[in-house]
Design a binder for these strands. Structure first.
Length: 319
DNA sequence: TAGGCCATCTGGTCCT
DNA sequence: AGGACCAGATGGCCTA
């Protein structure tokens, strides 16, 4: 690279000298008419001598390099964006346009939540996210959220319903009370999502996501999980944390990347605690003690809802 | 094989 | 003048 730059510099020097000579020649030629035709108005076009041609090529090469770098920067920014929108997968990246659309929808959905103070049901939320997205991406997002829900459902199958819990919470399945983690992991043989559509099953280690990422003190992600996906090579750390935090009240805050991606990831996912969000939204769950706060977040109705999410989305898409 | 997506090159325009 | 930005063209890769 350095050599290349040196070459360019030395070439510039040579060209500069040659250019001076050429310009002197052109001054003389400029007084004449070419081919008997009157000289054109405006700045006279310089003759393309070899040196000038080389210089043009050189500048073109430099411009190309700059343009390449610029596009790389743009792509890096897009990658950053991919990581902070729902359903991040390094193996199956959203296209640029879909990333932008999803990001826009996501911002819109979060804004709605902030402005209304209400948490939409899952279907509404997913529909908001998928508005205008292509069918494959819609499936991807819906599948991603559905995956999480079903994973969580599976882990807690057989337990009682929790009618007070908004279905919306189901998009945050990998997070629960810390002390609950062992049991949860154990119940699924150390492989959360062993049944249903798991990331491993699909070969697409998507990152589940939720708009309220953060933690009330009593809630932590169970990053002790032994899921092989947790250290998925497709996942890289040190990226932006989710922009939204929810600690009883709405607040904007950045979390340390290490917290989010280093330790807390599950299934190659980012850490989100839903419990805090629940509490502040009047579901009065997180306000209880940690040990008393264990509950079963899913009921049959919720499960059914998840089974229908993708169908409804598909229907909506085709309409 | 067609279509989608992407990277790169390229020339034009705008701005400093 | 030179760099940034933009949009069109082109070719490669991948997938259905």
């Amino acid at each position: 690279m350095r050599d290349m730059q040196d070459d360019l510099d030395s070439e510039r020097g040579r060209e500069a000298e040659e250019e001076e000579e050429e310009e002197e020649e052109e001054e003389e030629e400029g007084a004449q008419e070419e081919d008997g035709l009157p000289r054109r108005r405006g700045p006279r076009r310089k003759k393309m001598t070899k040196a000038r041609l080389d210089r043009v090529k050189l500048r073109r090469m430099e411009a190309n390099t700059r343009e390449r770098n610029r596009m790389h920067g743009l792509n890096n920014a897009l990658d950053s964006l991919r990581k902070v929108v729902p359903c991040y997968s390094k193996t199956q990246k959203l296209s640029k346009i879909e990333t932008l659309r999803l990001a826009k929808n996501y911002i819109w959905a979060l804004s709605e939540i902030l402005s209304t103070g209400k948490r939409p049901d899952l279907l509404t939320f997913v529909q908001s996210l998928c508005k205008g997205l292509s069918q494959p991406t819609t499936n991807l997002v819906a599948g991603c959220l559905q995956l999480n829900a079903r994973t969580f459902i599976t882990e807690h199958s057989g337990e009682g319903a929790f009618p007070g819990r908004a279905p919306f919470d189901a998009v945050y399945p990998p997070y629960r009370l810390r002390y609950d983690a062992g049991a949860a992991v154990g119940s699924s043989g150390g492989h959360v999502g062993g049944s249903g559509i798991s990331a491993a099953d699909s070969g697409k280690p998507f990152r589940p996501y939720g708009p309220f990422c953060g933690a009330a003190t009593s809630y932590e992600p169970f990053y002790e999980s032994t899921s092989p996906e947790c250290s998925s090579p497709t996942y890289d750390g040190g990226v932006l944390s989710p922009p939204l935090h929810f600690n009883g009240i709405f607040s904007l805050k950045h979390e340390e990347p290490s917290d989010l991606y280093g330790r807390s990831c599950h299934f190659g996912t980012r850490c989100c605690s839903v419990a805090s969000g629940r509490a502040s939204l009047g579901h009065s769950v997180a306000s209880r003690g940690a040990t008393a706060d264990i509950h079963v977040p899913y009921d049959i109705q919720l499960r059914n809802q998840f089974y229908t999410v993708q169908d409804e989305l598909n229907t909506a898409y085709h309409q």
